[in-house]
Amino acid sequence: MKLSFLAAFALATVAPLASGYAIKGDAVNCRSGPGTSYSVKKTYKKGQNVSISCQQAGTSVSGNNIWDKTSDGCYVADYYVQTGVNGYVTSKCSSGSSSGSSGSYCKTLNQAGLSLIEKWEGFVSSPKPDPIGLPTVGYGHLCKQKNCAEVKYKFPLTKSTAQQLLNDDIPTYTKCLASYLNASKVKLNANQWAALTSWVFNNGCGNAKSSQLVKRLNNGENPNTVASQELPKWRLAGGRVLQGLVNRRADEVKLFKTASSKQAFPKCS
């Protein structure tokens, strides 16, 4: 009884602290679930105060996998909320998925995959041509409209809004990659999945679909062998070998061959 009373008292004293936390990022998305693959319900401005009703684990953002459910009924990454700690400040949400995978393949990437993409794409605050002349912004976002008008974040981007834009873009590439792979023959862990998504992000869904890499995986060949042999072939841009692509492929192979206990395809754990 004493332990139960103390636990109840502790919870009661924590609950009031779940109000009035300031948003510390620019244009922070509040989503329908605890992950970057969920739809955006609203956007908070920097400095805006939010109340947190509960917290739960979800997609990791810069090493923090806690998501805060706000009084608006949507979820915001705890990384962008100034709670003063990296842990829980209120009770865990009683229901809902703990990841953005919707019970199937991982729609988002682990931090190692996101960091790899950020490293090789580089940060661009306002739209400008990449090495082969394609207009990009943020961490490799390819402009779809003039001056990247489709981007909802204000230019010049900060690194924070560029990371959010990257998280918005990633599900497009995980979705196409998942649709090309034979789920009965291909099993990938989180690092393998992240490495391949980086490759698709860089080369496009169409090229991935027709690639020998995908065909060999679907034939049931050893994934590490396939990645080691096929990824380095993707080193051309504009018809010429780019050392940056050679180095990026090497990083992707290294990440692919790094052991991970977490599964990403066909099921996300």
Rank of each mutant, 00 (worst) to 15 (best):
N147T: 11
T172L: 11
V186H: 03
Q145W: 08
K185Y: 08
L165C: 06
Q145L: 13
L109K: 04
K175T: 14
W120P: 00
L116T: 00
A194H: 01
C106M: 06
Q163V: 08
H141N: 08
T197R: 00
G113A: 09
L109M: 13
G140Y: 02
N167Q: 10
A195C: 03
N182T: 11
F155S: 06
K187F: 08
T158N: 04
A178T: 08
L134R: 12
A149V: 11
N110E: 14
A178I: 08
L114Q: 01
G133S: 15
E121W: 01
V151F: 08
N147Q: 14
A194N: 02
P129D: 15
G133D: 15
G133P: 10
N167M: 10
L134F: 10
P131I: 14
P129G: 13
K175D: 14
L114P: 00
I117A: 00
P127I: 11
P129R: 13
Y173D: 02
P156K: 11
E118S: 03
S160D: 15
N182R: 11
S115C: 02
G122M: 04
E150T: 08
A183Y: 14
A190S: 15
N110P: 08
I117Y: 01
C148W: 12
G140D: 04
K187V: 12
L114N: 00
T172G: 07
T161G: 04
S104Q: 15
A178K: 05
Y153E: 07
Y153Q: 07
S102L: 09
L177S: 05
L181F: 07
V186W: 03
P156I: 09
E118I: 02
S126L: 07
K128Y: 11
I132D: 12
S126W: 05
D130F: 07
N191Q: 03
Q145G: 14
L177G: 02
A178H: 06
K107A: 13
D130C: 08
L181M: 08
A195K: 00
D169P: 03
D169M: 08
D130E: 09
L116S: 00
L157D: 03
V124N: 03
W120N: 05
L188C: 04
L157E: 04
Y180S: 12
L134T: 13
C148K: 12
L116G: 00
S125D: 15
S125M: 04
A190Q: 09
P127C: 11
A162S: 10
N167V: 03
L116F: 00
P127Q: 11
A178M: 08
L166Y: 04
P129F: 13
I117P: 00
P171M: 09
K154R: 13
A183K: 15
A183P: 06
Y105W: 14
T136I: 10
W193T: 01
Q164S: 12
V124F: 02
W193Y: 03
T197N: 07
K175R: 13
L116D: 00
A149M: 10
N167Y: 10
Y180A: 12
G122E: 04
K144S: 15
N147V: 09
S104R: 14
G100A: 05
L114A: 01
V186I: 10
S184H: 12
N191M: 02
Y153D: 06
S102C: 04
S115Q: 09
Q163E: 12
T136N: 06
I117K: 01
V124E: 04
S198D: 10
V151N: 07
L116R: 00
P127N: 11
N182S: 13
T161F: 04
G100S: 06
